[in-house]
């Protein structure tokens, strides 16, 4: 696989090949598995993502065992049907898919981690927007996932993708950056524009803390995915418009790593600081787990 974002961009430029192709080739070479098997595995991931979105948007919505999350994707769906939203229907459709996915996740439903379960809604949100605006085929969507995964591997190996080590920036931030870079390619942008989108997306969520109420992947995780999706789409559009990041992509990833290391443990998935540490957050924790919980 690739060592840096720069290496991905220069290889794609030199070979005049789309990034998705490079990533598929690398996966086939590294895994020793056939191209068909690699492709089918990614297609199964896409199918799972779509099923989760569908599940979260039907009926009364899905609710977590604690009752803290559920039913908000449905609210957005109804709002879109009855009102003219401020940020436009593509954006709110993406937000709806993101919320739906994380509501299914919080309800112990089946999802595809992209890169994590807590950030599983960001990518499906962007997919919903790409389908709406660009009418991408299934093949193009599978390619989108390979590109996103290739960029994500560099982030994971140079920074990290766990809230417990890097905060939410490592989860929703990484998901948003991967999705932004892959969305640029899907929309016909250059490899360098993908790297710019990744940089912008990371920069905009840098420092985001992981502060789940009662330590549960529910609040604020579900709505953070709405922002991860929106941020990805804005970053991709900025890059496609020709805007650039002053700081190169690989340095943005390094910055994210350092910020993550400097976050106190209370803001890294311990359910102690941030929103989890508020009087209301603590009250909910005590109600769910009893007062003896530290």
């Amino acid at each position: 696989m690739y060592e840096s974002i720069k290496q991905i961009v220069t290889t794609a430029e030199k070979k005049k090949q789309p990034i998705c192709q490079l990533i598929i080739d690398a996966e086939v070479a590294d895994s020793g598995v056939s191209r068909d098997a690699v492709w089918n595995k990614m297609k199964r991931n896409l199918d799972t993502m779509r099923q989760a979105v569908k599940k979260g948007e039907t009926g009364a919505g899905v609710h977590s065992p604690t009752g803290l999350t559920g039913g908000e994707a449905i609210k957005v769906k109804k709002y879109r049907e009855q009102h003219k939203s401020l940020s436009g229907d593509t954006m709110m459709g993406a937000v709806q898919a993101a919320l739906a996915t994380n509501e299914v996740n919080a309800a112990l439903g089946v999802i595809c981690a992209t890169p994590t379960a807590g950030s599983a809604g960001t990518m499906p949100g962007v997919i919903a927007a790409l389908e709406d605006r660009l009418h991408l085929s299934e093949e193009q969507l599978v390619n989108f996932l390979f590109t996103a995964g290739g960029f994500g591997l560099v982030i994971a190996n140079h920074a990290n993708i766990a809230g417990a080590t890097g905060g939410c920036q490592a989860e929703v931030g990484s998901a948003s950056a991967m999705a932004a870079a892959a969305a640029v390619e899907a929309a016909g942008g250059t490899p360098q524009q993908s790297a710019e989108a990744l940089s912008i997306a990371i920069s905009n969520l840098l420092g985001l803390v992981c502060d789940p109420i009662a330590g549960l992947v529910e609040v604020p995780c579900v709505k953070r995915n709405a922002i991860g999706t929106a941020n990805a789409l804005v970053a991709a559009d900025l890059a496609l418009a020709g805007c650039t990041s002053l700081i190169p992509a690989d340095e943005c990833i390094q910055a994210m790593d350092k910020v993550g290391r400097n976050l106190p443990s209370s803001l890294r998935e311990t359910g102690m600081g941030g929103l989890a540490g508020t009087p209301t957050g603590q009250r909910i924790r005590a109600k769910i787990f009893g007062k003896d919980v530290k």
């Binding site: 991931n45 390979f146 290739g150 529910e218």
Partner: peptide, 25 residues
């Protein structure tokens, strides 16, 4: 680079029952 993650499917995937990829899957 430590290269803990070696496959694109470490990033896109796994397919799993929620709620947390690190604490559940």
């Amino acid at each position: 680079m430590s290269s803990i993650y070696r496959s694109v499917f470490d990033i896109i995937g796994p397919i799993m029952v929620g709620p947390s990829s690190s604490h559940t899957a």
